[in-house]
């Protein structure tokens, strides 16, 4: 019978509209056999967490280029905890300065991928962590 498939929510928090990276990654994940739910632009932390919970995803991939990560990510992680969903793996990508990464990882972001990362790195990372 069918195995549980890896489900991922690709979300664009904040107001930036650059979704090339998010969409390329979503397609690469689809081609890697994941079920990918795409959130669309301008998602609030509340919308992202609610969608992640309803969809029972294994992973949330946050894509952000506007520089608002230090404001938005902590809120998302906080809401995940409130929703009893802190087991969801959170990864992030976009324009995120090196010196912010450690802080975000301390908060619970499992991995931050900077520009130039290959999609297979992200996919391998997820496979390794989710173990499927």
């Amino acid at each position: 019978m069918s195995e549980g498939r890896i489900r991922v929510l690709i979300a664009k928090p904040g107001l930036d509209g650059h979704d090339r990276g998010a969409k390329v990654l979503a397609r690469a994940m689809r081609d890697a056999g994941f079920e990918v739910i795409y959130s669309g632009l301008r998602q609030t932390p509340e919308q992202i967490v609610s969608a992640a919970v309803q969809e029972d995803v294994d992973v949330i991939g946050l894509s952000i280029l506007s520089g608002a990560h230090n404001h938005l990510f902590p809120r998302i992680l906080e809401l995940l905890e409130e929703a009893d969903a802190e087991d969801i793996l959170v990864i992030a990508g976009g324009v995120i300065p090196e010196e912010d990464i450690a802080g975000l990882e301390d908060l619970g972001v499992s991995r931050v991928f900077t520009p130039g990362t290959s999609t297979s790195d992200a996919i391998d990372f997820i496979r390794e962590r989710i173990g499927a």
């Binding site: 498939r5 689809r30 081609d31 890697a32 056999g33 079920e35 739910i37 959130s39 969608a51």
Partner: peptide, 10 residues
């Protein structure tokens, strides 16, 4: 691939 892109939520 057995994967899917699910975009209706947008």
């Amino acid at each position: 691939s057995g994967g899917a892109l699910l975009g209706d939520r947008t």
